[in-house]
Structures are given as structure tokens and as C-alpha cells.
Amino acid sequence: MRTEITDLDTLRRHRAENRDLRGVVLVRLDLTARADDALLRTALDGALLLGCLLTPEAARRAEAAGALAFPAVPDLPYDMYRSTLYTATELFDGFDPARPESYADTPDARIYRHTRETKLDPLHALTERLHDHSISEALADAMTGHPVAVMGGHALTRDSPGYRDAVELGVTLGQEGFTVLTGGGPGAMEAVPLGVRLSHMSSVDSVNDVVRSLAMAPKFASGATVDASEIGTWLAAGLAVDLPIDHTPRTIGIPTWFYGHEPPNPFCELHAKYFANSVREDGLLTIATGGIVYTPGSAGTVQEVFQDYTQNHYSSIGPPAPMIFLGSRFWNEDVPAAPLVRKLARGREAEPWIMVTDDIDEAVTLLRSYAESVQQAGALR
């Protein structure tokens, strides 16, 4: 695995230890100063210089020594070589709750417009792929333990019983100490991380008060056409909620600008936002090594069910992890995905980790049991 260096101090220590730069990845470093330029005077075979600033002489020398230099592309509304995940504050920078239409001026909205304007441009296809690779690296760095994912539809409104149920699921997962992943958008994807972050509250009434305040802006869009003012009204209500800041983030959203008309929610502490939806979906399912809870959703959620089961069926990522269908009638009758998954799993290692239930506590008990079994197996190795 390549060594990746994203700051000058680390590079200086690396070179002070008399280590060369063969195969090393340098990201967004300003190496134009004479002392820093000297750091490159070593073996560079196979080194990658991504978005680094070099003097013309240093660039020629690095290329001659076997390095590949990829420059920064000017006038992008995003950093193609970023080394960290996004925060809601960063994505919504410049948003004024008193002017809901100002959502159109946020980085999140501007990046989405840029993707639409440059859809068939090969240069921007390359920059987006490099950005997504960087996000995957940052997401891997942010993962600890065995995170649990919750899947569900974006259309769940804040004033619906289903939204309140999803908040309660988040509260219970938060009280159990799980790191929780969602798709990062509206609906169930925001209700669960909201619950995780409200899990410190001592009373149900306090949680209900927060949900009631959000119900004043129940959805991010009123129809097929979504405008900045509608999103801004929805967003302003979310940003008004006073939430605790955890030094070890436990809620991570994984949204995509492919569905850029669906804004990321303000309740996830971090967002791994991708351009490519296929990379985002596969990544979300892969890193949810603690299991996945499926709340009612539409075609996208059903697609995730079978992508997830395929990984479990063939143990392509690791041992099968829990698949919990929360909502018996929905998953057995309305959208009968659960019976098919159970039939495919019959007699296989995945079978005992598949559950259909209406009971949040039962679902969380299975997740806890799985985490304990993984921990015990690791201790025996």
C-alpha cells in the first residue's frame, strides 16, 4: 500500500529519516520554497504528485526521476484532492436562514450545478473520479469498530409517524454507542442521525419537542420540481436544532451529487459526498461491517437490499453481517424483499443474521450480538 503524505511536516520527517519517495503519494503540497524543493532530491520512481505546487525546474526533475505529476485543475468549485470528509457547515457555507433561497449560493448547490454543466466533459470526469477516490480514502480513515448502516427512503416527511420511528431507532443506536451510517439525504436518512445525536436527552418529551419543531418544514420539496427556496426552508429548520458536538463523530452520511436535487441533511456530523452514485452505494454497503437496518423505502432501498445480500451470500467482503428488515408488513407484503432474501440464505452462513421485525430493541439486540461475536472471534485469533 502506498504511503500518502498530505502535509509538509510529515514529508520533512519522512525525509529526515533518510527515506526516499519511491511509490509515495504527495497531495496538495507547496514545494516551491528552496528548502522544500530539496525534499524532492531523492529517488522518485513511481511517486505521484497530486495537485502539488512545483517550480518548473523541480517539475522537470521529478518527471525525469520517474514521478507522475497531476496538476490542480483551475476554477473547480471543489477540491479534487481533498483529504478529509465534508461537514454540514462546509457544504452549506454562506447559507442565510432568513433567506432560504440563499441555498443556491452554497458550495453544495454550486457543485451540483457544475456537474450538470460539465456532464460530458472528459476533464471533469477525471477530476470527479480523483475527488471520489480521495473521499473513499478519507472515509476509510474515519471508520472505527464495526459501523451500522440504516437505509430508507428520502420521501419520509418530518411530520410522519415513520419519521418519528426512525428518530427513535437512532436514539436507541446512539445509546448503544454504535457509529451510524446513512445515505446522508432527507427522510429516514436524516431522522436516524438526528436520533443518534439526541440520544443524550433524558426524556421522550425532549425528543418529541425537537421533532415537532422540524415538522414546521416537513419536506425538502413539494413536487417534482425542486427549488432552492424550498430546500432552504427545510434546511433552516434543521440548522436551528441545537445538537451536541462529539469529538469522535458517530454519524456519517454518504450522499451523492448524482442525486443533487436531494440535499444532504444537516444532522450527520460528517458527509462523504461522492459524484459517482455507484461508487457511493457500493462503498456504503461495504463499510457497514456491523450490519444494515432497512426501514421502508422505494426502489433505491430495494436495490441496496440485494447488493448487500450479494456481498453476504458470497462472503466477498468478509463474514455475513446482519440484515434487519424493520417493518414486517412492509417487507413481507408491500415490498416482499425479505422472503426472497431469506430463501436465498437458507442453509448458508448468512441465515441466522437475517431478521424481520417491528421491534427496535429486538433489532438492536441482534446488532449487539453480532458485534460481540466478531469481538470474540478476533480475541481468539
Results as ranks from 00 to 15, higher is better:
His133Ala: 14
Leu85Cys: 09
Arg19His: 12
Leu76Ala: 08
Ser328Trp: 01
Leu173Cys: 03
Met355Pro: 00
His146Thr: 12
Arg61Lys: 10
Arg41Cys: 04
Pro161Phe: 06
Gly66Arg: 05
Met151Lys: 03
Gly291Ala: 12
Pro122Lys: 11
Val196Gln: 07
Pro319Asn: 07
Gly291Ser: 10
Phe275Asn: 01
Gly153Gln: 02
Asp209Pro: 00
Thr118Lys: 08
Ala299Asp: 07
Ser134Gln: 07
Arg329Thr: 14
Ala240Met: 05
Val204Gln: 12
Glu57Asp: 13
Asp36Val: 10
Pro264Phe: 13
Leu235Lys: 05
Ala228Tyr: 02
Leu48Tyr: 12
Val150Trp: 03
Ile317Cys: 06
Ser316Thr: 15
Ile354Arg: 01
Ala16Asp: 14
Tyr103Arg: 04
His146Ile: 05
Asp358Asn: 15
Tyr259Met: 13
Asp165Cys: 02
Thr118Gln: 11
Thr182Ala: 09
Pro264Tyr: 07
Trp234Glu: 06
Leu91Val: 11
Leu156His: 01
Met323Phe: 03
Arg22His: 02
Ile135Arg: 03
Ala69Ser: 14
Leu123Thr: 15
Arg348Ser: 14
Pro77Glu: 04
Leu169Lys: 04
Val207Leu: 04
Asp121Cys: 14
Pro97Met: 12
Thr55Val: 09
Gln311Met: 13
Ala321His: 07
Val335Cys: 06
Ser298Val: 12
Glu4Pro: 00
Val180Pro: 00
Val241Phe: 07
Leu26Val: 10
Leu120Gln: 10
Ser328Ala: 15
Leu139Met: 13
Ala272Phe: 08
Gly378Trp: 11
Pro266Arg: 08
Glu269Pro: 00
Val180Gly: 01
Glu230Trp: 01
Arg164Lys: 05
Ala33Lys: 10
Ala16Glu: 13
Val150Cys: 09
His247Lys: 11
Gly187Asn: 06
Thr118Ser: 08
Pro56Arg: 07
Asp359Ile: 08
Leu48Cys: 06
Ala155Arg: 13
Asp96Tyr: 03
Thr6Asp: 12
Val27Arg: 14
Ala104Glu: 05
Thr301Glu: 01
Ala371Trp: 11
Thr89Leu: 06
Val150Ile: 12
Asp30Trp: 10
Arg250Glu: 00
Phe70Pro: 00
Pro193Glu: 06
Arg82Gly: 04
Asp227Glu: 08
Glu128Met: 14
Ala98Leu: 13
Glu57Ala: 14
Ala276Leu: 11
Tyr112Asn: 07
Ala58Ile: 10
Gly51Trp: 08
